[in-house]
């Protein structure tokens, strides 16, 4: 038995050589920090290494019961995900179904337009949107004023999109949404391309209208693609950081705090390594549960 295992390892020696360039940095720069982070979360740990002290679960209990901001950050992160992910999926599905029948050239115009915000760094868009959202001289207020929307919504006053607690989170979510459309759209178009036309011909012959064809053919056959998009988007939106750091710094009144932003503020800026690691572990727990749930759904597709 053992000899057999040894032989299989020996037979696989070339495979180990080929995975080594990936596995060695992986262990040093991913595996080790992951475990280290788990351990650090039980310590009171700051810049001075000699003063690191084991405090058990205290970081966690403080985070969940005493921290004035972290629960809000968790809530906001979920609001981001619950707002952006379904919106992106529905918009992309709608757009994909509509532009699929177009000629290749027109289709690639739309693909490029929707993919453009993905290509431009988050930083670039965040900076432009700060300018657009500005209360005194922003383009958005100007557009709203021109359309008569300011009178309708705010009694003619200009809106401080990023300065008001009731609009700040939504304003950031729209920026994140704008760069979350490109990839799903391309995936949906590819998914549509994999559905045989003959199914639609058959449906046509059977007298189905296009609404029925969409619900009975398109949607069920796009299911695997939709699940994949769901996973990728959820994880991407969970990491929302750039917009917060560059546009609001978590304000006003903590309305736009997110988990990753708290990790940065606490761990990097504030050098409270232990406390920030506990935040990261909570993020890990949330993402793992979601990833496992979504993977269960995807299992058939990947293995």
């Amino acid at each position: 038995m053992l000899a057999n295992f040894g032989k299989r390892v020996w037979d696989g020696r070339w495979a180990y050589i080929f995975i080594a360039p990936a596995m060695i940095p992986f262990v040093i720069f991913t595996g080790y920090p992951l475990i280290q982070g788990l351990l650090l979360s039980f310590y009171k740990a700051g810049v001075n290494r000699d003063k690191w002290r084991y405090i058990g679960l205290k970081n966690y209990s403080n985070l969940l019961t005493r921290d004035p901001v972290f629960p809000t950050a968790i809530k906001n992160t979920f609001l981001f995900v619950l707002g952006v992910v379904p919106a992106a999926m529905i918009i992309c599905l709608f757009v994909a179904v509509l532009i699929y029948p177009l000629s290749q050239r027109r289709q690639s115009f739309f693909r490029a337009a929707f993919y453009m915000p993905v290509v431009s760094a988050g930083v670039v868009l965040a900076m432009v949107w700060v300018y657009i959202y500005s209360q005194e001289y922003g383009l958005l207020n100007y557009i709203f004023e021109s359309l008569g929307l300011l009178d309708l919504l705010n009694g003619g006053e200009k809106i401080g999109w990023l300065a008001q607690t009731d609009t700040a989170l939504l304003s950031l979510a729209i920026v994140v949404l704008s760069w979350s459309l490109g990839q799903p759209l391309i995936l949906f178009l590819a998914g549509l391309g994999a559905i045989p036309d003959s199914l639609y011909d058959a449906a046509k012959i059977d007298g189905a209208n296009s609404w029925q064809a969409f619900w009975k053919i398109t949607l069920p056959l796009l299911r695997p693609t939709m699940l994949f998009v769901l996973v990728v988007l959820t994880i991407a939106v969970f990491q929302v950081f750039v917009v917060v750091q560059l546009m609001t710094l978590g304000g006003p009144a903590n309305a736009t705090q997110t988990i990753v932003f708290r990790i940065w503020v606490t761990g990097i800026v504030g050098a409270k390594f232990g406390y920030a690691s506990a935040m990261a572990v909570i993020l890990l727990a949330i993402v793992s549960v979601l990833a496992i749930a979504q993977f269960k759904l995807l299992d058939r597709q990947f293995t």
């Binding site: 720069f29 920090p33 280290q36 982070g37 994880i235 990097i268 390594f273 920030a276 690691s277 990261a280």
Partner: peptide
């Protein structure tokens, strides 16, 4: 599947 920020702090150290 995991956000990098999860192990950013130890990596920073």
């Amino acid at each position: 599947m995991l956000p990098r920020q999860i192990y950013m702090i130890p990596l920073f150290v």
